[in-house]
Amino acid sequence: MQEAQILKMLTTFDLDLEWFKENLTSLKENYDQNYVAIENTEVIVHDKNIDNLITKLKQLGKDPSKVFIQFVSKVKSIF
């Protein structure tokens, strides 16, 4: 594994997480009760079912293990 490759991936992942944070309100409005897949600060796929979402990602030629997948709901999660 190359250190530079790892750092680049982690930096990209952080940008996607920051974008998710900043856009959470609008995401909840547009994708309530959906799983969203975010790559490069963009929602590329969404679906109410996680398995369908994975299938859609593969159809787009995306590796699901490299994409930020998050369930979006207007109902607040409390752990």
Binding site: P64, S65, F71
Partner: peptide, 9 residues
């Protein structure tokens, strides 16, 4: 969790 696990296949 399940979202990340789904991506691992």
């Amino acid at each position: 969790g399940e979202e990340d696990f789904a991506g691992l296949q």
